[in-house]
Design a protein around this nucleic acid. Structure first.
Length: 213
DNA sequence: ATCCCGAGGG
DNA sequence: CCCTCTGGAT
């Protein structure tokens, strides 16, 4: 079973996999993705309504104080780093990009608090540019399904997925693997009884590798 | 390699 | 209680 066939199977189980972070603009998407680091999107969606009501645009966010932003997002993890990142990146958007979110990898990754994963998600969801963001779910699922090796870095996993999956399926495939990892192939207690990939699964090998390390 | 860091699930 | 959640900067 090749990578495209694996996606076919996942899409039978999850026909409507998509971005679940609530947002109404590319700026709001960027902020929501920064907030989503090491945090469930359900938690992010609890704080963004209040945050975006107070500061809907990069201009408003840049004019807010970091402590004011903190007060809206204190419920989620890493809130001090995130408040600082959101404020500072809004300032850069206003001063360097005329209030527009850039779409190149180089420009996105130069923003404070924005790394390769966040940049890939923004490019994929906001600009519909073929990308493959590798987060904790995509990394785990790729290694369990044998699309990458246990020792591969996230950059290596991204490279292998892009090579093995048709380009026109990258953006949807990302969300397919997120849903599969979030709702079926979970980190703890995966639902192997309902999984179509038990024959090819390398979960045990992945865990053995982690033990040695 | 370490730090950040609250909430929800098992 | 411990683990995990669409990571990034140092």
């Amino acid at each position: 079973m090749n990578a495209n066939e694996i996606l076919d199977q996942i899409e039978q189980i999850f026909p409507h996999a998509q971005c679940e972070l609530h947002h109404q603009s590319s700026f709001q998407l960027l902020v929501a993705v920064v907030l989503s680091a090491q945090t469930t999107d359900a938690s992010v969606n609890q704080v963004t309504p209040g945050l975006f009501a107070a500061y809907p645009t990069s201009k408003a966010m840049a004019q807010a104080s970091v402590s004011e932003i903190e007060s809206y997002i204190r419920r989620i993890g890493l809130y001090r780093n995130k408040a600082r990142s959101i404020h500072d990146l809004s300032l850069v958007l206003e001063e360097e990009y005329g209030g527009q979110v850039p779409c190149s990898m180089k420009e996105l990754m130069s923003l404070p608090g924005v790394g390769r994963k966040t940049a890939n998600v923004v490019r994929s969801v906001a600009f519909d540019i073929p990308s493959f963001a590798v987060d904790t779910h995509v990394d785990r699922v790729s290694k369990r399904l044998g699309l990458a090796k246990p020792q591969d870095t996230v950059e290596k996993v991204e490279e292998k997925l892009k090579r093995k999956i048709d380009r026109n399926r990258w953006n949807q495939g990302h969300h397919d693997m997120i849903f599969f990892g979030r709702y079926l192939c979970t980190a703890r207690n995966p639902h192997c009884d309902a999984c179509p990939f038990v024959k090819i699964c390398r979960k045990d090998k992945l865990e053995a590798y982690k033990q040695k390390k």
